[in-house]
Nucleic acid binder design. Structure first.
Lengths: 237, 237
DNA sequence: AAGTGGTCTAGACCACCCG
DNA sequence: GGGTGGTCTAGACCACTTT
């Protein structure tokens, strides 16, 4: 999965392993030219490996001095993952309960989000997403049914992203996400088994493929007592 | 500022300008080898320029086919900026009202965040941050006074980040940020001129320099009616 | 088959840090 | 001054898309 089989990536994996198995923070790595000789690759290839490791926060570089092991990180940068992956990475078992699955007229709002005519049908899926059986968020997803014919038959506990990718070849490449703080209305509170007016995240997300075509639009309400965001933010270069 | 004066960066700026001034989304850019010939640089230099443009979401590439103009973006990726820069980028005039500025014992919590002994003093600054005169957030900042002697004399309406960088040479390179949804307590509500129990973001941030030394720890409470987060998230490669 | 992006090489010069 | 990262060149082969 994460292996690209390129020399740069193999070197990156190797160096990451070496660092992981006992190199102290701020200890110096061999010079780029040394690594190039030792691993019989060009210096550019070494640099590509180190570039990525630097971006991941594994090492830092000081011009004229060298490349050094960075202090271990608590937080990872926000990544684009499905709810399922997200929960598993937190050590929770993801689940899902389907409330609604129907086609409705897109209307102005969802038509614009999915770049289809307002008169066209869109597929509306409403699910309660659970973690270890406990309700975590209420999610309304809108899709273009022309692109995913018969999708509802495949929706089980499997990740929606996985179904879209494996059965329809729709790979999500990036997404725009907007995060608002809110409180739970009485109805949402009941569905989420939480007190009314308790804090919540209201998140909208539009997902796109590599050609920038919108794949999915989703509105999610998260219980804030169970969910928060961790970001690692880099200074503009 | 944003110009690195490298050939790759000059080419990037030039291409960004060309795209900005009227190229339609999905129109094809010249091949990398063509660009290299035309601008009399090597192909690798062209690729570095395009790499960055791809990361910024200006173009996308399809192997075997070419490089294409991406659809315009609404959202920018989260960037590490000061409150002042952040507000200016939203077209608002940032302001600040100092409530507290004193040294206190670090204690376990802030000592750990700033990697100093719990018995050592830390500088605690509490400010109401305003946008166009309206309270936007309540911010408690903790700093190591040994690193910023006499800091309080320089705090005016100038950005704290600017003071730290210009007067103390402390340049923040990255930060870990944790975002929680919450509601305003009565006291915070009064300070922020908002109704009690209205939605709010509670954000903690630890800022580091290039050597991964903690510079600043801050806890901020934002009025959610005036603030939200826009993220652009990229798929893991 | 031709064109394009993805990867890689070997070598060069520069700017910066350190002993 | 020697070592290091930052940038750049000219050329090569591969994998993939398009014609």
């Amino acid at each position: 999965m994460s292996s690209q089989e390129t020399k740069a990536d193999l070197l990156r994996q190797h160096l990451a392993g070496v660092i992981d198995q006992g190199l102290e923070p701020h200890s110096k790595l061999p010079a780029e030219r040394e690594l190039a000789t030792e691993f019989e690759v060009s210096r550019l290839t070494v640099r590509r490996a180190l570039d990525r490791m630097e971006q991941e926060g594994l090492v830092y570089r000081v011009q004229g001095a060298g490349t050094f092991v960075a202090a271990p990180r608590i937080t990872k940068s926000v990544e684009l993952t499905s709810f399922s992956e997200d929960m598993r990475s937190r050590g929770l078992e993801p689940g899902s309960r389907l409330l609604i699955g129907e086609t409705v007229a897109a209307g102005a709002r969802y038509g614009a989000k999915l770049q289809v005519s307002p008169a066209q049908d869109v597929l509306h899926i409403r699910r309660v997403r659970t973690a270890d059986g406990e309700p975590m968020c209420l999610e309304d997803t809108y899709l273009n049914p022309a692109r995913f014919p018969g999708l509802m038959q495949h929706i089980g506990n499997e990740s929606l992203y996985r179904v879209m990718e494996t059965r329809y070849g729709a790979r999500i490449e990036w997404a725009e996400q907007s995060i608002h703080a809110s409180v739970l209305g009485p109805q949402d509170a009941e569905i989420l088994h939480a007190p009314a007016f308790s804090p919540a995240f209201f998140v909208t997300r539009t997902s796109f493929d590599t050609m920038d075509r919108p794949i999915e639009y989703a509105e999610s309400t998260y219980r804030a007592d169970r969910y928060h965001y961790e970001l690692r933010i880099q200074r503009n270069r």
